[in-house]
Amino acid sequence: MALSQPAWVIDLKTSPSSRPKAPSNVADPPGYSTSGSSKKSQKQITPPTQAETDDLKIKKAWEVALAPAKSLPMNMIMMYMSGNTLQIFSIMMTAMLFMNPLRALSSVGNTFSKFDGEATHGRLLTVKLAYIGLQILTIVIGIWKVNAMGLLPTTRSDWLAWEHAPVPLETSISNFR
């Protein structure tokens, strides 16, 4: 901290004391001690190191990345409960199951940009990958659901409409009267 910083920068960086300074002319109520809080504020005043901030950022990023994992069991239960019939609710829920992950996937960079820094950039990659993996997992649940609803052309019967009987090479004419 060789550089002298302007006062407002310092103000900005250090969190304000939890309580505005009491006017000196007013005595604290009996039994009230400001020593605890003043100790804390004294501690916070010492700024964290860059490494610490980065760790914190990565930690935060992990939290964001793993958030979809928490909703996975809920999604699965909901999908299971909504049944395989084609109804407005099950269709809407299934659509959400695709929409949300796709939206999330398209804005992966945005989501993690506030954690991004020169130092964290490399470490953030695994976090992003985990995030993408989890979103894909959600989509897989959606695909499983769509399949369960019979919407995926995975069976023979789905292609039956494009199958035609062969053209007979011969003709037959008959009258058995």
């Binding site: 023979r156 199958e163 009987a165 062969p166 053209v167 007979p168 090479l169 011969e170 037959s172």
Partner: peptide
């Protein structure tokens, strides 16, 4: 099941 035999040929001869 799922066995079209010769049904998917282009032409068929008796």
């Amino acid at each position: 099941k799922n066995d079209p035999a010769r049904l998917l040929q282009q032409n068929i001869s008796s």
